[in-house]
Nucleic acid binder design. Structure first.
Lengths: 182, 182
DNA sequence: TTGTACGTACAGTTTGTACCGTACGTAATT
DNA sequence: AATTACGTACGGTACAAACTGTACGTACAA
């Protein structure tokens, strides 16, 4: 294998691995591959360049890039004289990690909390009616579980606050190497 | 709406919300719904009971329950005199959250690190050959990125160590209520 | 040993979604 | 104003994943 191929395959291996593991962020391998490609490409790319590089349709590049933008993994950049939109990978992985929780997870938490609050209100009105022993017990059990959930979501939000405020880096510093990986 | 329906719908709303939001853990709504059902069912359930409750096939229940078990969200329990397998939801959501990172994320990190190390070794041998200025620059750039990634994964692992050791609860206590949700 | 109950592997079917080509709206260029 | 270049909404297709039914292996019961 000549040096050219070796250089390419070394990069490809990592891109491919990343692409198959970005399901943790809820994206498909194709989208992951696009991020990997942008990450290793030092210059911003146009949709046409991505299309060419990945041998996929321009449409796919457009929607994929939008997904990555929504996840704060990619941003549009401007360069004078160039009409096409240019995109480049955000390269601060710590920030991407934190943003993911601050955005995606908090969105979900908010939805769950809303549903739980609604159900709690309803159950509390039911409590005022005549209930059998069993019914009352069931309602109280459910209310306990709802309360537990709410507490948990509060905890999660506090945790994400901690991430977002960068206090987490006081606790675990970026450069520090304390133990060997693998 | 009578009290019976109200009680059921209050519970259903929350189960449904959870089921649609458990994609963050990489599971489908069906599997999420099963977890929700088990969570609110105070007694362990058999596959047949789940099948009946969710109006799905026993096969689906079997595979779904296995998925949830792999995620440490459900466990098999024994009861003397009962031949069927019984399953119940694990109810410690903090632990589930932590286990998710300790298991799923670490698995992915390990794979990524392996790929990167392999590629780093290859690039370092390439560096010893005759390279054009441009080639050498590219290789060095890639090596820098690989190093960055390795550092990031070390950081993540340290973070998860912190979770796993429960030190995180010293930092953010479970009961504490500091701010209002939503 | 035979019969019964149970969980799951497997293969078939259906549902969902990733991806493509086309065709349109918008904005820059002349 | 006309033309060109560009990004994306839309509808169709093809592949993948979720789900089902059957059928088998295993373990307990009689």
């Amino acid at each position: 294998m000549d040096k050219k191929t070796l250089m390419e395959s070394a990069r490809e291996r990592v891109i491919e691995t990343i692409s198959h593991n970005m399901y943790l962020y809820g994206v498909t391998p194709s989208i992951g591959r696009l991020y990997g490609t942008l990450f290793f490409n030092d210059k911003p790319m146009t949709l046409d360049e991505m299309k060419e590089e990945l041998k996929m349709s321009k449409t796919s590049m457009s929607t994929s890039v939008r997904t990555l933008t929504d996840l704060n993994m990619v941003e549009k950049v401007w360069k004078k004289g160039i009409r096409k939109d240019l995109y480049e990978a955000k390269k601060d992985w710590y920030q991407i990690f934190i943003d993911f929780f601050s955005n995606e997870w908090r969105k979900v938490i908010s939805l769950n909390v809303k549903a739980i609050n609604q159900s709690m209100r309803e159950l509390k009105t039911v409590l005022e009616e005549d209930l059998t022993i069993d019914e009352k017990e069931t309602v109280l059990h459910d209310l306990e579980k709802f309360n537990y959930a709410i507490e948990y979501y509060k905890w999660l939000n506090q945790l994400f606050d901690y991430f977002e405020s960068n206090q987490i880096f006081d606790l675990i510093t970026k450069q520090e190497i304390e133990k060997e990986l693998d």
